[in-house]
Design a protein around this nucleic acid. Structure first.
Lengths: 253, 253
DNA sequence: CGCTTACTTGAGTCTGGTCAAACGGGGTGG
DNA sequence: CCACCCCGTTTGACCAGACTCAAGTAAGCG
């Protein structure tokens, strides 16, 4: 298989039946037939290094991915280079659905850590809808969930103050990390730079730094060598006036 | 049928076969079987007055809607009343998909003009996926399209300057209006107040006004009694560094 | 050891926010 | 008919949050 991205390598395929993610209580259990289909739907695996681009805006990828492990982010650029991070992708998330459905990607995806991806073929999507209505429903569900996260981000960037925004983002990422890890210690370190925070919240790097220092002064977070350590997730969501992540089981395709 | 909203009335049902929207070249043609199913899926129609709320955050609606005519907007509120408009809904758009899939609505929808809605029943969604894979695919497509619009909004609010944001929004709304009207004159009037622009762009009303005056001084728009008249849509998208709406046929459910 | 990357801090500027007031059209009640 | 009010827009004055520029620090790496 030709690797669709640089700094990426195809690796041995793990069967879906043995997928470590699927065992998490977070994900809805699959019918045996569904599991069998997904296993055939899966074309292989791919490892993308930290800092590499998984998908590029404007490209027409023949593939669709699910994150097995690692973190990444989706973003868009303006012509002059201004960057807006749209959302983060974590294990269990799908990448490239827009491109698969509508042809052209309108955003890019970059790896924050080394990422391991399941690769699916776009062509087989039709068969998915035809033969496994439950999985088709799941696809819509996944897209609607992404929309819901974007709604909340938009509320943040548009209407929350700098400190609320920062608290929201860090609380949000902590909450998401928590859902896909069996047990996350309170001191979980998010693999992001301050530049990512700035580009997510629509702020300058300098002002982001000053805002984060204020959160650190209150001992809600600590900035460590390779990321942000979340010390008080509950108080972050409180500062942000955020409702928190809805607790619901979700599909894993 | 109990009216799910105030200031709303159920009205006579027009059969989907005679739907005036479906004739537009914008929408993909349906198989006869699909059309028949949608027609049965449709429970009735509903008229919602300007200013009334179609769906409320936190509610569990048993219905799903498609806009037949009129304009509305989706929004979220912070506890202290700060409002963020997330997107606008126009004829052919679906309302309440998130609620239908996941139970609870996480945003509200309000009518900008009188709105006429098709009402569908949530229960029948399963049957849609089971018996009409093409329609299931369409549902995912619709959700992914909404996501794409939100991505662009987020880029705007996060990274564009005040005047770019305003130009983007007005160019965007003009472009969308254009797609659902057979022939839109250049002087199309968008049914929005400056407060809506402010709440969409994450700006104060005062500063929004000053920004709009700058666009008006350049003769790109004119603010008229009941809305915003778009005079130079191409130049707006240029000011905004926006790519414009992708031209593609889309499904209408 | 020098180079790079990422975080930090201070100073000065400016975009955009807040407060306040006025205007103008449309509707309503006297 | 007029007075009044309400809604939405407009404008000015002032303030503050956020941006830019610039420089410094600390850790990691070849």
């Amino acid at each position: 298989m030709a690797a669709p991205v640089k700094n990426a390598k195809a690796v041995q395929k793990i069967p879906c039946e043995a997928c470590p993610l699927r065992d998490l209580p977070l994900f809805r259990p699959f019918e045996p037939a569904e599991l069998e289909f997904v296993s055939k739907f899966k074309r292989g695996e791919l490892i993308v290094d930290r800092g590499s681009t998984v998908l590029v805006e404007g490209s027409h990828s023949a593939h669709l991915f699910t994150v097995l492990s690692g973190w990444g982010f989706r973003f868009k650029l303006l012509q002059d280079g201004r960057r807006q991070i749209l959302n983060y992708v974590l294990p269990g998330d799908m990448i490239g659905l827009q491109g698969a459905l509508m042809g052209e990607m309108e955003h890019s995806v970059e790896a924050l850590t080394e990422i391991r991806l399941c690769v699916f073929e776009r062509q087989k999507l039709n068969s998915l809808y035809r033969n496994h209505p439950g999985l088709g429903f799941d696809m819509t569900w996944i897209a609607a969930r992404e929309e819901q996260m974007l709604d909340e981000h938009l509320l943040s960037v548009g209407r929350r103050t700098a400190i609320e925004r920062a608290a929201y983002l860090l609380g949000f990422l902590y909450a998401r990390a928590e859902t896909v890890a069996a047990a996350v210690p309170k001191g979980l370190v998010l693999p992001i730079r301050q530049q990512h925070v700035a580009d997510t919240l629509g702020m300058s790097l300098v002002h982001t730094n000053k805002t984060l220092r204020r959160l650190a002064a209150q001992k809600l977070i600590a900035w460590v060598e390779h990321g942000c350590q979340v010390l008080e997730p509950e108080r972050l969501t409180q500062v942000a006036q955020w409702e928190g992540l809805p607790e619901r089981r979700r599909p894993l395709v």
